[in-house]
């Protein structure tokens, strides 16, 4: 997942992100989510601050889109979509047997998310301009 995420940010936003050793609890006002169904069921999410989402959108689209919240949300959704797609493309035989949902983006940070157990998950934090971008994979086992 780390490799898939780093590659997406590098190719689409032109930034090489480093992994934070201790990710801590994910936080930030923008969360993009993409569901996975089939041979692997679960969800991939990308969460960051509104400012970071705006900066990423500007890098992806050029120009000053950081002030357009709608564009920033959509761009984060696309990044999440590509992280999930890139992740499954890297796992042998998964690409043809796992479908992705369209991205959903939540704005706000006062929420909790509960998946139907049994689940396994991992969260990694990548650092962009000193701010964390949390990438989470939750799978139903």
């Amino acid at each position: 997942m780390e490799c898939a995420a780093v590659e997406v940010f590098e190719l689409m936003a032109g930034v090489r992100l480093e992994l934070l050793a201790s990710p801590g609890e994910p936080c930030g006002e923008q969360t993009a989510m993409v569901g996975m169904a089939g041979a692997l069921c679960g969800m991939t999410s990308v969460r960051c601050s509104r400012t970071t989402a705006g900066k990423l959108a500007a890098l992806m689209l050029g120009g000053d889109v950081a002030t357009n919240p709608s564009m920033a949300r959509d761009a984060l959704g696309e990044l999440c979509n590509m992280v999930a797609g890139n992740f499954k493309a890297k796992i042998s035989n998964l690409a043809d047997h796992c479908m992705l949902s369209v991205p959903t983006v939540i704005t706000g940070d006062n929420y909790s998310m509960d998946a139907v157990p049994p689940t396994e998950g991992l969260t990694l934090a990548l650092v962009f301009e000193g701010e964390p971008i949390f990438v989470t994979l939750i799978t139903h086992s």
Partner: peptide, 24 residues
């Protein structure tokens, strides 16, 4: 395509597509 599904790419090429790009 985002998904990297070989089957869908083959289907697209069979239906007349001249090439494909995988995101990212």
């Amino acid at each position: 395509t985002t998904e990297g599904s070989e089957a869908r790419v083959v289907e697209a090429l069979s239906a007349g597509a001249k090439g494909y790009l995988r995101k990212p």
